[in-house]
Amino acid sequence: MSTPKKPTEAKAKPGEGVSRRGFIRDVGLGTGAVGVALSPTAALCAPPALAGPGPVPVTLTVNGKQHKLELEPRVTLLDALRNYLDYTGAKRVCDRGTCGACTVLLDGKAVYACNILAIEAQGKNIQTVEGLALSPEPDPLIRAFVNNDGLQCGFCTPGFVMAAKAFLAENPNPTLDQIKRAFGGNLCRCGSYNGIRRAILEAAKSAQGGGKNA
């Protein structure tokens, strides 16, 4: 799981769900990019502070564990987690910061992993859904999602769970109405929103030992 993989040019491209057309386009442009990197103008105006465009050392702290990687600066945190570290909990769905399936916590705040470069996430505490299963007692959120049918196909679930984790840390005793308004950053194509809301409410109550909204 934590073995860093040697990145290849092909691996550095978004690895998942590559269509044949997309692959040809990426490889074509990749060759162009190498040309840019070697061009004399780029070399002239490149101060020493610049990293890349080739692979550079990147250290990520995921669920408390440090991982040393070699990544191109263009690799997103999501692709680094999924393709280089095998943390496949965060899902790659829209890849445009809209659907929320890639939600992870960065220093405790919910963010879209697809909208952050891995290189910018260095020095930050990255929490993925895998981190919730580390202790022998599963996180109350996991149990609550199971108890309340908070999912159908389950693809959006890791994102919802992590968004809920951040939400409950700031709002330990929410009302159902607050929950309804707080998850505008996550989509569920199956439409399991009612179950998801009930699950988050139950998780809040179980963490509180029964909340005021019971």
Partner: peptide, 30 residues
């Protein structure tokens, strides 16, 4: 995404020096 070189300066002057007088050469990331 096309490959790019990345910098994370700590002063405005350093950041400005990394930009270009033409659009398309450098982008600011916030």
């Amino acid at each position: 995404m096309q490959a790019f070189a990345y910098a994370s300066p700590t002063s405005i002057q350093e950041a400005v020096a990394l930009l270009s007088d033409r659009w398309g050469v450098a982008d600011v990331l916030a």
